Computed example of a mutant assay.
Amino acid sequence: MNPLLSAEQALIGSVLLDPRQLSHLDWLAPDHFYLPAHQALFAALRTLRDDAHPALSQEPVPLSWVSDAVEAASTHTRGLTATYAHTLVAACPRPAHAPVYGRMVLEGAIHRSITEHATRLHQAARADALQGEVEQALHYADVLAGVLSDLAQRWGTEPRPATPTIPPTTVPAAPAPVLADQAAEDERLLLAVLAEEPKAMDGVVGWLRPGDFADPAHGQLYRCLGALHHRGEPIDRVTLLWEAQRRGLLADGTLSGDQFTAICDGVGPGSAEWLGELVMRSSVTRTAATSARDIRALAQNEALAPGPLIGHALHALGRLDEVRARWQAANGGPASTPTAPAPSPIGPPSTQVHAALARSTPPAFTPSLGRPRAATSPAAVPPLSRGQASEKQRRQFVR
């Protein structure tokens, strides 16, 4: 049994039984349904409502409401018959529960939409890595951020980044051997130039971080260079090796003596800023691919509600925002705008409030039986003295 399919069938069945339920489903769109037949039926039912179908004013609902909807929807999809329409009617337990069924349909659409756009971002990041570019990855990251903001408004929540309590279980995708070899070579050349020309650190230290290196050993060695530069100490292969030893890189096996020798002996003419931009470009595409995989793993978790899902997805995109800002600083570009819109200081927009209220109906207030008791103002109750408070606590403990 598929819960999403059952929810879609129950929703269409509720509208076939009671056309007035469409007035509670204005926040739901036909493309939120998974099955094309359900999309066509919901669009046809809306069109009949907008055209003032006679069934809207008749009680009980005539059979023409169902037959006209099937006939209109059949022009957009194949295999739709009146028999299936009666199956949908039988699948609806309570027509009055249509807003709840619609919430389930919207929840499924949110998971599917985020999965699709995260997949596109991952594909764009991989393609940019092959071509040595970042534009497509950043473009699809902005598209995904816009989709998350729109889905948050439809669901009735604020698009705020939220750190997941349990990180998504994703297996890091191994880069292509050619890409890994090229990225490692660029990193080795950059470290060799920085070790040979200490003044070159001034050109990259402002925007290049150890986490931008694909090889953890290279990132730790760059951290050693940054520490020497920050303390104003001389930088050469001896001081760099000593700093690596002090940080335990040689003892724990992060950096071997052969690796260190290969880096320091592989120096040649080169620009530290240009090599740093190559490392940053690789970091942008790598971060975009990692964020996309994390978001896709979150969206495929059906137990995650749409609100937390959107917040966790925005949090994953935040990592890319930070790398993008430093990439633009390396290229002398303007600061990037964050993908996640800032929350309104005066509360959520009215459209979000309407969406949240439309998805459910608050229960009617039931007055309590018996004699009403007058509310006691806190100011009218005299505070207990220290002795009275202690005696009261002692009595509660004895009980």
Rank of each mutant, 00 (worst) to 15 (best):
D265F: 08
D265S: 09
G268L: 08
P269T: 04
P269H: 06
S271P: 04
S271I: 05
A272R: 00
A272T: 03
A272G: 05
A272E: 04
E273K: 01
E273Q: 08
L275T: 00
L275H: 02
G276A: 08
G276M: 00
E277G: 03
L278H: 09
V279A: 01
V279C: 05
M280D: 02
M280P: 01
R281P: 02
R281K: 10
R281T: 00
R281E: 02
S282A: 08
S282P: 08
V284A: 06
T285L: 08
T287W: 12
A288V: 08
A288H: 01
A289I: 11
T290D: 11
S291H: 07
A292Q: 13
R293V: 13
R293G: 02
R293T: 07
I295R: 00
I295E: 09
R296S: 12
A297N: 14
A299S: 15
A299T: 11
N301H: 14
N301Y: 12
A303K: 07
G307P: 10
G307E: 10
G307Y: 12
P308I: 05
L309T: 13
L309P: 12
I310N: 04
I310Q: 03
G311D: 06
H312V: 06
H312Y: 11
H312G: 10
A313L: 07
A313R: 03
A313H: 00
A313E: 06
L314H: 02
L314Q: 03
L314E: 00
L314I: 02
L314W: 02
L314V: 08
H315M: 05
H315N: 10
L317W: 01
L317R: 01
R319M: 14
R319H: 15
D321G: 07
D321V: 01
D321R: 00
D321Q: 13
V323L: 08
R324V: 00
A325W: 13
A325Q: 05
R326F: 04
W327M: 05
Q328K: 08
Q328C: 15
Q328L: 13
Q328N: 09
A329C: 06
A329V: 04
A329W: 01
A330N: 00
N331D: 10
G332M: 09
G332Y: 13
G333H: 11
G333M: 15
S336N: 14
P338D: 06
P338N: 10
T339N: 06
T339L: 06
T339R: 03
A340Y: 00
P341E: 13
P343V: 15
P345W: 10
P345R: 09
P345M: 14
I346N: 12
G347D: 12
G347W: 12
P348C: 14
T351F: 15
T351Q: 15
Q352H: 10
Q352M: 12
Q352V: 12
H354N: 05
H354M: 09
A355I: 11
A355K: 00
A356S: 14
